[in-house]
Design a protein around this nucleic acid. Sequence first.
DNA 1: GCAAGGTC
Length: 812
Amino acid sequence: MVQGSVRVDFPQTYQDWTLTDPLDLFQAPIVKNEANPKAHIYRHLNQEARGCGYLVLWLDCDREGENICFEVIECTGFDVNDTRRKVFRARFSSVTEKDILRAMDNLVEPNKDEALSVDARQEIDLKVGVAFTRFQTNYFQGKYGNLDSRVISYGPCQTPTLGFCVQRYLQISTFKPEKFWSLRPYILQSGYELQLEWERQKLFDLDAATMFQNLVMEDGIVEVTDVSEKQEVKSRPPGLNTVNLLKVASSALGLGPQTAMQIAERLYTRGFISYPRTESTAYPSSFDFKGTLGALTNNPTWGNYVRTLLADGYHKPRVGTDAGDHPPITPMLSATEDMLDTDSWRLYEYVCQHFIGTLSPDCKYLRTKVEFSTGGESFHSVGHRVLAKGFTHIMPWLGINEKNLPQFTQGEKIEIATVELYEGSTTPPDYLSESELISLMEKNGIGTDASIPVHINNICERNFVKVQAGRKLVPTALGITLIRGYQCIDPDLCLPDIRSFIEQQINLVAKGQADHTRVVQHVLLQFRQKFSYFVKQIDNMDALFEAQFSPVADSGRALSKCGKCLRYMKYISSLPSRLYCTTCEEVYYLPQKGAIKLYKELTCPLDNFELLICSMPGPEGKSFPLCPYCYNSPPFEGITMLFGAAKIGGSTKLGKGAGMPCFLCPHPTCQHSMIAQGVCACPECSGTLVLDPISAPKWRLHCNTCNCLVFLPQGAHRISTTRDKCPDCNSTIIEVDFNKKTTPLEDGSTLYTGCILCDEFLHSLLEMKHGKSFFRRLSSRGRGRGAGRGGHRGRGRGAGKYVDPKMSFRDF
DNA sequence: GCAAGGTC
């Protein structure tokens, strides 16, 4: 319940990318914050612990769990050394009555070393990842215009993950096909034509292959040298763990790991399957197979099979591996296809099939091998005959392909019909499939069941790889260039060993064999040296970038004029989208979502930059003007609310792509400012409703802070704000110029002026819409909405000199 | 804007 509630990060002073040298991050302090301060988990646990004499910690019995134990101890105010208020740790391997009681009878102390090893990993991962990421991003993003990635990230898990994809790409691109030849004699036996397999398989020398062909053809007769039969077993699977579920989801169901996990989580929270994050393939000894199978007996899809299985006696599952975390993934409830959406059903179906498969008999088949000899060469033919389908009944795609061979007897001589000299060519491997990547990550200890999907998703989101049809991972130019860059500066940086190195170091801490602080210092020192070397050698990587990407100055298309040099600036639409002034060599970041275009060649009165219009996607996306210069450097003091910024405790911070559009600008006379375009307070938040200047003919107001949307009279020719205020509520009086043909005014006139809140006619034409909820106000005007607004619309900015009118639709 | 690990 408290897992993941604490987050480790750098203090505020290290958060500014431009002011912090990434090298300093290695020695920087780190802080632990509540990941979700609103949840008040710390306060809650603290209150719960008041007056308690014992603290018994029931968390996952792994290192992460041990680490969280100490987080809990800290917020509860307990102390492991206090003899009066004792702290205990419950160690359990499953959540069954027997196990819980046994854990309660055998309480132990929490393991500080294991907890510290997690602290160590967190600090190392944070510092190494963030230092490299910030440096790379700063260095390359400012230099090249078409990188098309918001952040050029580095991480000890994601980078080796990318490395696997690029390694395969390089194998493919450097592959040289080779011709080969193979002998394929055909014989007729009992009316069947049969192609014999050559013991040598293939030869890369045509002369040699031709020689063997001649020998066989000259002989013309094959002799059966041996006929053998052997019963083979294809084992039923062990229990299903996360990684195997993800591999099947990707390769057989076409669902990416991220999607598959989301679906699995929903199936879990809805009670259909057990906890979907587990490494274990072994069922706990206490597992209730009968009960779990029993739940499926009435299922229309598997009911019959399950009932037979229960009647005949199900098989003990294979041993599997017990990682000590959670039981394998199994069904919990019976579901039918109509209860779930398509993909949920397919995933659930697999979980059921796999579970039933683990309790089914093995598949048994007879393997017949016939060996032949001719012209001094050996050939063979293999046939399969299924004796018992076993689990392949319920998992048919794993079934044995039957191949019947005609009868042969040892010593039998058969005439050869033809001898084909097959000419083939070696082919490169295909791009790495997602399923293969998951296997490689698991094998190399990159990520965990829960984080593997995240790492794969990361390298996709950062535009390092693309998922192609059939869920193959194709690295992009950026991904390839990065890995080639590491390979030429310091190959360690992208090899999987980097993870195992960290893992092995923190293992020493966990086992109490090394001091936490010393290990962290030691590892960080090594990475700091690697980092310094990387920075020193970055020219080598840059040479690869230069060959692949265009400099920022050559990118993009002319869009709007710079206010300083009055020349056109280039618009770079690839992320992060920005304007670049070639003359001033300045970059102006833009909102990272939405379409950008020139706003009628209008200019900002403060700096003379041409204004742009940003239109957010979707029918309800707002559109608004912005000045590229003001957006990046708000011209007035005390602008705390920015557009497109991460919210941190009520206010926001400037980052790439976050800024001040005109609808947040307090300029007193500019016609585009919040002062001129603001109409009234937002009914939903503390923001201001501003006129969307290009929303014709679906005129609307949108809030400059939240996503509240109010539709004005539709189809009007023009709607604009005036300089007048409503004497009753101090909202801005708006002027509507209705369309001549559709005007609702009785006398057929088109011009109407009024307050959208107090004027009954205008108010009746409003529709309010925000988020998904929607309502229409029908009733009459209200009275006594708020006091005056001190002559200003908008609020809160400029050191609180504006009065909050607290006036809204809500208060009617 | 940044890592990897949890999780709902």
